[in-house]
């Protein structure tokens, strides 16, 4: 399959990877362990999942602005996401993506993307291409 979603470019760079999709807002401070890259936010649908090398798709961030530094710290330890896709970007995540140098696009309906999809994020054009979707056992 080859579906292109058009959003707004925020942080430049083109990255291809496997999507990790959440329906819930994510706080990087307190919500992601900076030592392991695992989501630790209670009652979160990604709880226990690793964001390392994922194309991380979630509606928007929340919580402390220190969260931006957590993204930087994760990226320096190679535990960060390959790219970020948001419904509506907020300052914490945008600033985090800028300093961590992670391509980012927003204004995307993230429910169109499924965890496990192979996607390509273009932070220059503001697009997310779904290149491959694993067949689900239904």
């Amino acid at each position: 399959m080859d579906l292109e979603l058009k959003g707004r470019p925020l942080v430049s760079g083109v990255k291809r990877g496997i999507a990790l999709v959440s329906k819930k807002p994510l706080s990087f401070l307190g919500g992601v362990d900076p030592e392991t890259g695992l989501v630790t936010e209670k009652n979160h649908d990604l709880m226990g999942k690793s964001i390392k090398d994922a194309v991380l798709c979630f509606p928007h961030g929340h919580g402390s602005t220190v969260g931006s530094y957590v993204l930087y710290s994760l990226a320096k330890k190679n535990l960060g996401p390959k790219a970020i896709v948001n419904g509506t970007a907020d300052p914490v995540v945008v600033v985090g993506a800028v300093i961590a140098d992670v391509p980012m696009v927003d204004k995307i309906d993230v429910s169109q993307i499924r965890t496990g999809d192979t996607v390509e994020v273009d932070g220059e054009k503001g697009t997310v291409k779904i290149l491959e979707r694993k067949k689900t056992c239904t």
């Binding site: 402390s64 530094y69 930087y72 710290s73």
Partner: peptide, 16 residues
């Protein structure tokens, strides 16, 4: 500028 207390920050911002 905010983001000073090591109690609230932890190690994350130090590198930056």
């Amino acid at each position: 500028v905010s983001g000073i207390s090591y109690k609230t920050l932890g190690d994350a911002p130090i590198e930056f």
